[in-house]
Design a protein around this nucleic acid. Sequence first.
DNA 1: TTCACTTATTGAACTAGTTCAACCTGCGCC
DNA 2: GGCGCAGGTTGAACTAGTTCAATAAGTGAA
Lengths: 192, 192
Amino acid sequence: MTDLLKQNLTRHAALTPEEIEQFHLLFEPRFVKKKSFFLRAGAVCDSEAFVVQGLFKVYHVDAHGFEQVLYFAMEDWWLTDIDSFVNQRPSELFIEALEDSEILTISKPSKDLAYQRIPALNKLYRVMTEKTHVALQRRMLANLSKTADQRYVDFIEKYPRLAQRLSNVQVAAYLGISHEFLSKIRKKISRH
Amino acid sequence: MTDLLKQNLTRHAALTPEEIEQFHLLFEPRFVKKKSFFLRAGAVCDSEAFVVQGLFKVYHVDAHGFEQVLYFAMEDWWLTDIDSFVNQRPSELFIEALEDSEILTISKPSKDLAYQRIPALNKLYRVMTEKTHVALQRRMLANLSKTADQRYVDFIEKYPRLAQRLSNVQVAAYLGISHEFLSKIRKKISRH
DNA sequence: TTCACTTATTGAACTAGTTCAACCTGCGCC
DNA sequence: GGCGCAGGTTGAACTAGTTCAATAAGTGAA
């Protein structure tokens, strides 16, 4: 079960086997039932998590009660509100399990300790943050330039397995459109 | 002239004076005239830069020839296409001077060398990337939830000095709306 | 089996934002 | 001094996307 985590850590930067072993011992397993929360707006994000099994939605709720999805996290993804976790300030995000899930969590004190003891972790998280930032930049540009139709097609092409596990309501909240309009897009596309 | 850079470096992580001195020596000054480019799509981003004086636009040009602005960089900001710089692959972005500008550049080999010699830089750039990522997340959520009116008001409140130096065409390309529509928004707002 | 609830679809009326074309500055340049 | 031209405004016609309300199908719990 922690093999997936170890593989993930190895992918981004060259840590020694000892460093990986030492780091992964700081994680604790936890089960999160469908519809319950890893983080709620207003609370401080006091731990980060790696998804071993299951699916989560990371989202914001605006003044009108509408949800905007920042990202979905399934197996091999990370859960965190960087701002809240790093600065230990109240979060503005919700992180909710969409399926019964299994995660590995690391507390803020443990991670701070790890940064001190394993300096190479700074490089690891620098590289990981760079990658997620590049992905978000691409999404930002796509949102500024493409129609909802194109963004929907791009989404199901880029994340086919994820798309299968999501309702259209969830996908619409990610694309930034109403679920009714997504339904109309799907109809149009299905007619070729 | 390099004082601004040193201050900027100090702001994000605790480097020793020696480390800052050693790092800043790797930067070279360069002048970029208005309307000329620091980076063009298709080229590899072989250096990063810190803006000492002037103003730049970092943007993408889509298939229809429309520009989408990723961000503007004035004094005390950084210029880079992270993806192209880190992975040394052709960029999809343009970085163009909107005013006669003065920058400090560091080449890819110099920065790689610096990471080796000054491990604390990994923490510095981890923290800087985290901050820009958080800012982009907020912008993404704002774009998904707010109308163009609200986004325009937010923009001039958040970056009042920057907004003064930009034409409405540039601001519209940042907000993701046509400049004609921005003009109508401005008229509506000016009537209180 | 029934009840409550979530999910998806559809249509009609509406609104936010685009597109195109016209026009009006101000301003640098030869 | 006139010329070209980038920047901003405006209006009219259009399109992308929303909102609201109705309907139907599936699902899980008691």
